[in-house]
Design a binder for these strands. Structure first.
Length: 885
RNA sequence: GGUCGCGUAGCUCAGCGGUAGAGCACUCGCUUCACACGCGAGUGGUCGCUGGUUCGAUCCCAGCCGCGACCA
């Protein structure tokens, strides 16, 4: 045993202990066990550790450490993703701060070079933060989505899907982010409700009045788009407009004739029932325009400034005007024309870019698309058939719901940082999709029958396109590597629910298509971390918790234990400082228990003793309880019940081992014989070993420190495997439970009748029966502060009377007895017993209960009647004796 | 509007057909030779509301009220 300092210095020891593990090669797959693999959800290169990361990586670390201890060959794959938009944004901002030229001025190649430089210098700070958390990731296998290998995988997938017609180029409406000037996917758009206005504009009929009507009034929340209207639509069944269908209206300001058409899209109940159709700037309108072959007029450029062109006929004064400025102009001009028919305030849903925060503009552009619908089929089937399971199971519904209604996936981005689309164009625009430029040239030469100049597509691919390959690309695919053979499909993927669409679904699709196998057997969906009041954390609320601050203050162990103990299924978790503090106390408790054991020379034995050979009920009991706990933790972790596993460990270590076992063992060290002491040392050491080993996945630092200090012979914790949990001894458990109950009952009675804690009393066991825990006399004396234990026929005068385990005991407290308090105490117990008795008797009095309830339940109730009946009799008698004083 | 989830002790949450639980907070007591980041003893709940199923409902079903998330 090595001497333990007074307390654990997490600040200096945690980093040292981490380094020791890493240097020992603990984080690399080892041994011959069955492979177990988890790929980390790759954090952004720009990312830093937030509570969500802390939770997710704690849980993954627990799984990995648990499986390692069970002898599995564990790979926890680390890597980061290149985060196209975010990274480009960061580097551009940095360039601006340094007053360097804009990226457009230095050109694409130089800019991309700068991004790589940035990554070398400042990317990946999250690695060090994950190390502080204690994450046992295999750093030696780190991957990056822009690595050559992973880029190769991306090209392979693109080329193959292109050749199978599952990737195609198409001009369609996309969500356009005017700030970053790129298309983004549906998922990167956040719709939120904002206070807006609904304007009513009158469009005059072109050929004068029809049945006394000379205009049609449309309602719009986006007046500026009226400049590009191609039609006005009404519902075919709308009586108000029946006669107007087919007529033309004169579009104000632009002075263009557009038709009134009938379509199912307008809701007659909403607004005026007449809807303007701007096919190039609204998703619903686009569909209507396509159905009726209405021209799509582009109104804006890449920055969402208005453009006036020959084609769109927008007046020159709008050219170059910002879209919101243009809105004001349109409204003013309509009013001037006398065509305004009112305006109302209205809550409207508006799309925002999740990274840029600006209003997204639907824009008609050429983009690359993945035929997600086709890929989704096998991915849905893989979950339906149970090849991949969601935990908690409910999330599979979210997955199905999304997958079954999936839209084409827009994968092209007008950025510079990312995987460039592997397509080259010939002089006539003919496209050649190839793994590299040389191949494209070869194909082109064959096509044109001469060498031609090619230009590569300027778009890059959505970051999620490369992340979708993560489970197999990190293992070396498209090469057929040993890692791929050993670790694919991976065992578990752990992530948050909001990533199901972004990532899980896409990994499933790609894996089923390219590997014909699921990417992972289980998808564990963890909860959201909220603040201590259950509020979602947000920068604007200022309630964001920095996990690193908790690590600084308390250490990683308490933070990890807090997160694990709150990781229940199906509910978000609230993180509070108090709770972390509480588990810091738990760590200290373990520490002090070990220090006590050092005083008693009770190390973790070099060779584990066999509990079957223990003689003392106390030691047989703790071995039995320890085995129970170990089995419970394993069961809980197998079921991803981190909370239950943590609770079992906490309850056993503190509630059973420290509060009872160590206390009950003290009298043996005081005056037990040599053999009893030796056995108790061995059992105690063994149990501490069990606690440290089962707790290690949760608290990898302090458990290592204590194990190393306490282990006889100095062998480290990592040489030990998960404790075998086979021993039980019901008889010893029962005996100890009785002793513990009696001690508790005596303590309660003493406290309630105000016996000073320091006073030592004599205990009398009343009547003929003998208690079944004779072996614990010394412990009872010590823990309940009893001087002597004697059998007696009758309780002495002035005694507190205790009914425990079917026996009556008396505690003479001489003159100090508080008669009133004692009667009150007995009354309380009598009341409780009566309540229980009445309840059980009530059930048994119900004939239908007797006939319909299962016999064992009925028997249970009968036993309860007997037990509480006897208890009540004893208590009543005790009270009578007291009153006769 | 559709889908999913949640309302259990002051707070944060387990439990989910047969004796209501944990941590924290609170009250009282304690320099008990590992630990006051501690020890001991307590207080606190018509388990959102209303019906139904059942011998029996916090748990299952239906409706309602309140809260939240996701998708339209």
């Amino acid at each position: 045993m090595r001497d333990l300092p007074k307390s654990f210095d997490h600040e200096t020891r945690e980093p040292e202990l981490y380094r020791e593990q890493e240097e020992a090669g603990l984080f690399k797959p080892s041994g011959e066990g069955e492979p177990y693999a988890i790929v980390i959800p790759p954090p952004n290169v720009t990312g830093s550790l937030h509570v969500g990361h802390a939770l997710n990586n704690t849980l993954q670390d627990i799984l990995c450490r648990y499986r390692r201890r069970q002898g599995r060959r564990v790979l926890w794959q680390f890597g980061t993703d290149h985060a196209g938009i975010a990274t480009q944004m960061v580097v551009e901002r940095q360039m601006a701060e340094r007053q360097e030229p804009h990226r457009r001025d230095i050109g694409r190649e130089a800019f991309v070079e700068k991004v790589w430089q940035w990554r070398e210098q400042s990317g990946g700070q999250i690695k060090d933060q994950l190390k502080r958390l204690g994450a046992s990731l295999d750093w030696s296998r780190e991957r990056f989505t822009m690595d050559e290998g992973l880029s190769e995988a991306v090209r392979r997938v693109f080329v193959d899907l292109y050749r199978e017609d599952l990737i195609y180029r198409d001009k369609r409406l996309v969500n356009w982010d005017p700030k970053f000037q790129t298309a983004i996917s549906d998922l990167e758009v956040e719709n939120s409700e904002v206070q807006g206005k609904m304007w009513h504009f009158a469009y005059p009929l072109a050929d004068g009045e029809v049945d006394g009507i000379k205009e049609i009034v449309i309602a719009t929340t986006r007046p500026e788009t009226m400049l590009g209207d191609g039609a006005v639509a009404v519902h075919p069944d709308d009586e108000r407009y029946k006669n107007l269908i087919g007529k033309m209206v004169r579009l104000p300001i632009v002075d263009r004739l557009i038709p009134i058409i009938a379509d199912e899209y307008p809701d007659p109940e909403l607004g005026t029932g007449a809807v303007k159709i701007t096919g190039a700037h609204d998703f619903n309108d686009f569909e209507v325009a396509k159905r009726h072959d209405i021209p799509l007029l582009m109104l804006m450029d890449e920055e969402a400034n208005m453009i006036a062109t020959e084609e769109n006929g927008v007046p020159q004064r709008f050219d170059g005007v910002d879209r919101f400025e243009a809105r004001k102009m349109v409204v003013a001009e309509i009013e001037e024309l006398g065509l305004s028919r009112g305006v109302e305030d209205k809550l409207i849903m508006q799309p925002f870019g999740d990274r840029s925060g600006v209003v997204i503009e639907p824009m008609l552009t050429d983009q690359w698309w993945v035929d997600a619908k086709t890929l989704a089929g096998p991915a849905i089937e893989a979950v339906r058939s149970g090849q991949t399971k969601f935990v908690p199971q409910n999330w599979s519904k979210t997955y199905y719901n999304w997958m079954e209604n999936i839209e084409p996936w827009c994968i092209s981005r007008q950025l510079w940082w990312g995987h460039r689309v592997p397509v080259w164009y010939g002089p006539d625009g003919h496209a050649f999709c190839a793994m590299n430029e040389a191949e494209a040239h070869r194909d082109a030469t064959e096509h044109y029958e001469e060498a031609v100049d090619l230009t590569q597509d300027t778009d890059v691919l959505d970051t999620w396109f490369s992340s979708a390959l993560w489970p197999f690309s990190t293992l070396g695919w498209p090469e057929d590597t040993e890692e791929l053979k050993a670790f694919y499909p991976t065992s578990v993927l752990s992530t948050a629910f909001d990533i199901i669409f972004f990532w899980v679904a896409r990994m499933m699709m790609m894996a089923m298509h390219f590997r014909k196998e699921v990417p992972f057997e289980t998808v564990y969906i963890h909860a959201l971390v909220r603040d201590e009041h259950g509020q979602k954390m947000s920068k604007s609320k200022g309630n964001v918790v920095d996990p690193l601050a908790y690590i600084d203050e308390f250490g990683a162990d308490p933070l990890r234990f807090t997160l694990a103990s709150q990781a229940t299924q199906g509910r978000d978790l609230s993180l509070s400082k108090q709770r972390v503090e509480g588990y810091r106390n738990f760590r200290t408790k373990l520490w002090n228990a070990a220090r006590f054991m050092q005083m008693k020379s009770a190390p973790i034995p070099a060779e584990a003793p066999n509990p079957e050979e223990f003689k003392l009920p106390l030691n047989r009991w703790i071995a039995s309880e320890g085995a129970k706990m170990t089995a419970e933790i394993a069961r809980a972790l197998d079921a991803f019940r981190f909370d239950e596993a943590a609770a079992a460990a906490y309850q056993f270590a503190w509630g059973t081992f420290c509060d009872w076992y160590l206390e009950l063992a003290k009298p043996i060290f005081d005056d037990g014989d040599e053999a009893a002491q030796a056995e108790t040392r061995a059992a105690m050491g063994m149990t501490l070993g069990t606690i440290l080993l089962t707790l290690e996945p949760f608290m990898p630092f302090v458990t290592r420190e204590l194990y190393a200090a306490m282990k006889e012979g100095g062998m480290g914790l990592d040489a030990a495997s998960w404790p075998e949990a086979a021993f039980t001894d019901e008889k010893a458990s029962k005996e100890m439970a009785s002793a513990i109950a009696l001690i508790s009952d005596i303590r309660s009675a003493r406290s309630e009748v105000n016996v000073p804690p320091s006073a030592k009393l004599d205990l009398y066991a009343i009547g003929a029966g003998a208690p079944d825990f004779a072996s614990q006399e010394a412990a009872i004396k010590r823990l309940a502060r009893i001087e002597t234990i004697t059998a007696a026929a009758e309780p002495p005068k002035g005694a507190v009377q205790i009914v425990s385990g079917g026996m009556t005991y008396a505690l003479p407290v001489a003159d100090v007895i508080d008669l009133k308090a004692e009667i009150a105490r007995l009354d309380k117990e009598i009341g409780a017993a009566q309540g229980q008795l009445k309840k059980a008797e009530g059930k048994l009095g119900n004939e239908r209960f007797i006939s319909k309830a299962p016999p064992e339940v009925v028997a249970e109730e009968r036993a309860r009647v007997e037990k509480f009946g006897a208890e009540l009799a004893q208590l009543t008698e005790a009270k009578k004796r007291l009153e006769s004083l």
